[in-house]
């Protein structure tokens, strides 16, 4: 990667939330990620921006794509990457999150990528360690790199973000992806709608700066982007929605509902998908589906974030 990008605008030590990212910061990260995407399509993907640095992936929740995406991004930038997952960690033996943080801190990592099931966990860690912390998902709060990779995917496909209508559909209540995307897309000037049954909408959702719908046909009208969210299995059995069958009938993305969106609307999903629950199989594999592009851009965005943060690391 070249180092000629306007990164002066991203000078944070941690990336914990999208709530306070500026359009300038997001734009700079996406520009850098565009470059990383080009690097990733070359045969030699290895760069040395993080040579000598140590990256720890600390995952308290199972994750395939986010963890491997961060691992690849770190390795392509030359960092030493270590994966710690909950099954092998001391947390299983009763250690508190803060004790784990203090232990890890003593090993002098440079960047800690953390996913935790509790909202606010990344921020708590950031207060206790000396290294940079990247939030890779904390409860139903934030998942900043997901929102950035979604923004990158949209920008590359549509050439812009501002002015687009984005419909985020599904389990908004429990979704950190939704919250992060609402922040980033609003900051970048998109018009954001959320669509869900009332039981899966957070209270006062409209205060996040979105239009709220409980009917897919209304919410998807003239959308440029249809972003589907995963419905977790334990939410399908009667406490939030009655069944996956009913959920698919009223909120699953199928050809009929997609027809309400613009003819060139993009279909997105952060994965992993439940085919036949929130998205019909034919739609997941649709020519306008950019779900695989999202995965590719995930590596690029994480390289951009790691590189940008690497520049903030102390050099002593």
């Amino acid at each position: 990667m070249t180092s000629t990008l306007p990164l002066a605008s991203f000078t944070r030590r941690h990336l914990l939330t999208c709530e306070d990212l500026t359009a300038g910061e997001i734009g700079a990260l996406l520009d850098l990620a565009d470059t990383a995407a080009e690097v990733n399509r070359q045969i030699n993907k290895k760069r040395d921006a993080l040579r000598g640095r140590t990256l720890i992936n600390l995952f308290f929740e199972a994750s395939t794509r986010t963890q491997s995406s961060f691992e690849l991004a770190g390795k392509r930038l030359g960092a030493d990457v270590m994966n710690m997952s909950v099954s092998s960690s001391s947390m299983q033996k009763g250690e508190t999150l803060i004790d784990t943080a203090i232990t890890l801190n003593a090993m002098r990592p440079d960047i800690l990528v953390v996913r935790h099931y509790a909202a606010g966990a990344a921020e708590l860690l950031a207060q206790k360690v000396d290294c940079s912390v990247i939030n890779a998902g904390d409860g139903a709060h934030q998942h900043p790199t997901q929102a950035l990779l979604d923004a990158l995917t949209i920008r590359r496909a549509k050439g812009r973000i501002a002015g687009l209508k984005v419909a985020i559909c599904g389990d908004i209540l429990h979704s950190r992806v939704a919250r992060s995307n609402i922040n980033v897309l609003n900051t970048m000037g998109a018009r954001v709608c959320v669509v869900a049954p009332s039981t899966l909408l957070p209270t006062q959702a409209s205060r996040l700066g979105v239009e709220v719908f409980t009917d897919m046909n209304e919410g998807l009208a003239d959308a440029d982007i249809v972003m589907m969210l995963r419905l977790q299995r334990e939410r399908m059995q009667g406490s939030y929605v009655p069944s996956s069958r009913e959920y698919f009938h009223f909120f699953g993305l199928d050809q009929e509902k997609l027809a309400r969106a613009k003819p060139d609307a993009l279909i997105m999903h952060p994965g992993p998908m439940n085919r036949g629950v929130e998205i019909a199989s034919t739609i997941a594999d649709h020519s306008r589906s950019v779900i695989r592009d999202q995965v590719e851009m995930g590596v690029a965005v994480r390289m951009a974030v790691l590189e940008a943060m690497g520049r903030q690391l102390p050099n002593r």
């Binding site: 059995q237 009667g238 406490s239 929605v241 009655p242 069944s243 069958r245 009913e246 009938h249 009223f250």
Partner: peptide, 15 residues
């Protein structure tokens, strides 16, 4: 409105 009238899981009200 709940499966088996057990008061625990809601039924497919829409369908």
């Amino acid at each position: 409105m709940t499966k088996g009238l057990s008061g625990e899981e809601m039924t497919e009200i829409g369908l």
